[in-house]
Amino acid sequence: MKQTLNVFQFYKTKQTFIYEIVEGLGKTVCMVLETFSYIFKFDINFQSTVNQMVEVGWRSTPIVLLTSFFTGMVLALQVGTATSNLFNEPVYVGTVTGFSMVIELGPVLTAIVVTGRVGAAITAELGTMKVTEQLDALYTLGTNPVRYLAVSRLLACFFMLPILTVISNIVGIYGGLILSTNTWGLPSCTYLSQSLDFMTVRTFLHGFIKSFFFALIIVIVACYKGFNAKNGAEGVGKSVTESVVTSMVLILIADYFLTFLLVTLRIK
């Protein structure tokens, strides 16, 4: 009897879990459709969008510069060390650093940094508004919270993340250049020619296209978690954690599928 009850409880829990996932997906799709409907209708608050662009772009720049610069240096150091062990001299340092930054590390690292800084902030802000009834207040004042809050954030992230990615690529390659010239004694023109000679517009587009998708993931997850926060300050904290973790995992998963798709489409 007890075992039957346990089995029943197990199925009930599983059912609830599946129900919650399906409900969450449904709500997310509705929110995304609503957001895009406002964008296509050009129902946009430009002032708020510009403010968000400053928040997403300008204020994220220092941390993106820092992480990209050191990532570029680490890459150059690792490649130089590995090739020195194999060929007794550092080779392909510029090529590997440049390609890695532009097609992979630039977009992914920038997206992860922006998730931690901007995604978390969006969820915290919207979540606090939810638990303090500010979202309800918006409704009663004739304003749809999705239109007022999500549209500007989505547009800001959609335009600023690719720009940050380009900055990240340049700074990462520059970080590799500094290390290569100082540690491996590689002439800067050699490093740069290694980096850029084999790089085409398609190589650049590979990472650039990814960043648009990552921007969508960051904002959609952050807004969804914020709009559905509950249970006071503790609930908001939980939503922020879930938002950051979900975004990061989805970015890494999406990265694989996007890479596969772009390689298949010969954008590489």
Binding site: M129, T132, E133, D136, T140, G142
Partner: peptide, 17 residues
């Protein structure tokens, strides 16, 4: 219809920003 209505929230619900 909501535009004809006003709601005073228990905790005020003022916009922090």
């Amino acid at each position: 219809i909501q535009k004809k209505m006003g709601y005073v929230f228990q905790e005020a619900a003022l916009f922090d920003s």
